[in-house]
Nucleic acid binder design. Sequence first.
DNA 1: CATCAATATTGACAGATGTCGTTGTCTGGC
DNA 2: GCCAGACAACGACATCTGTCAATATTGATG
Lengths: 126, 126
Amino acid sequence: MSKLLPLADPVESVACCSPLVSRPMTADEAEAAAPLLKALADPVRLRLVSLIASHADGEACVCDLNDAFDLSQPTISHHLKTLHEAGLLDRSKEGVWVYYRIRPAAFDAIGALLATSGTATSGSRS
Amino acid sequence: MSKLLPLADPVESVACCSPLVSRPMTADEAEAAAPLLKALADPVRLRLVSLIASHADGEACVCDLNDAFDLSQPTISHHLKTLHEAGLLDRSKEGVWVYYRIRPAAFDAIGALLATSGTATSGSRS
DNA sequence: CATCAATATTGACAGATGTCGTTGTCTGGC
DNA sequence: GCCAGACAACGACATCTGTCAATATTGATG
């Protein structure tokens, strides 16, 4: 499920001038992958994800997140919803509080995507 | 340059419940990183990058790219400009033709970012 | 039950984005 | 010098997005 695109065979990739990926993305694959990146492509949401990831257990309460921004509560709530609907965050309610947790699989998928699109797999020394 | 955020010490990360990253992203870091993702967060641009990456040498002529889509030439040109301005693609003119090439460093940066935000570093088994 | 605190939902609005048609700018060939 | 082809820039337009204020919902508590 995290295999969005087949990478070219490692052996082949090492050779001088072979393509970076074995075949281009299909339109459907692109349509499926774009929403994940879109959800992440906002400074506020990036920080939200980062904040949650930097908490112990990779989960954080909305009340903590609200305080980290100068934005209104509904705005934060909206961004969290966006991330949740994209499948990047899990939600769980505990009493009055709501906790959001990083969903690792989604980030793995994006990682695979990027390794695919560019070169990021094994850190090219630029 | 590709180090957008410091990961938690590997040693610590292995321990049960320590944070995934050593510290959250700053607002400035997020503002800097978001445009890269935003440039990539579009189905057409994803396919463009993918198409270029799947060409030998990781470069492709605009004329080839235009034919792969049902969109107008100006639209493709616009998307290529977006990717170029985000630093994801390099441009070079050869006679009448213009070639776009994957810029690996930019993708490395995004890769580091994601390893940071989520878990994608070492393939978590979901 | 009344009230308060934590989140979500709704509605509104300015600004960004994707697309197109048209026009402009090169470059190479006649 | 002129024309045709490859690509970029411009202007227009509909849609999407981020934000807020106001309101609703839900759970704990007195």
